[in-house]
Amino acid sequence: MSIAQFLTIFISAVFISNVILSRFLGLCSFVAISKETKPALAMSLAVMFVTTMSSIITWIIYRFLLIPFNLTYLRTISFILVIATFVQLVEMVIRKISPPMYRFFGIYLPLITVNCAVLGVAVLNIDMFFVGAKAVNGSFVYSTFQGICVGLGYTLAMLLMSGVRERLDLCNVPKALKDFPLAFIIASIMSLAFMGFNGFKF
């Protein structure tokens, strides 16, 4: 474990392999909810929370349940179930303890279950920080950190995109390109800009 390693994970997850702009995970929610800044931010915070927590939970399940019992082929099923249950749980808890918070991002929580970013980061953690059936040194901390960073990358892309799209409301955009098509073209240019970080080495 070293600072350089963490920094590399950070830059890679936020910029180079940005979860949306380069891995295309969570693209549906990205295009659908990035029309205005406020909901975009709420959705991003919810996603960040869930990616972090699900990174932790799926790591524990993989390491202490699936590997010892030789059930690694159940990875996909077990992860998606755990994530769905967890999201459901969070939704219930939030509704009980803080109605304002529930109103703020409660409606986005069910959407997160089928957000590829969450399952994506869980699977990615396993692919990156397990060699064979063994956890690499510091695997748990890296996984958690990667969960946070993927959430940050999602937030960054959402925030930029929502700002840009709010401004585009005032623009004279060609009719055929309105909304979805233009959102993809903007994402493409952002993705080109983020390529500046390619080959980052600290």
């Binding site: 702009l21 055929a176 390109l177 979805f180 098509p181 959102a183 993809f184 493409s188 993705s191």
Partner: peptide, 25 residues
């Protein structure tokens, strides 16, 4: 080369969606 990379994918899908919108219009 860029078309084989992520920005190219986003660009192609954006332009194709626009193209189909145009046909529909």
């Amino acid at each position: 080369l860029v078309l084989g990379m992520p920005p190219g994918a986003l660009l192609v899908i954006g332009l194709l969606l626009g193209f189909f919108n145009m046909l529909k219009n």
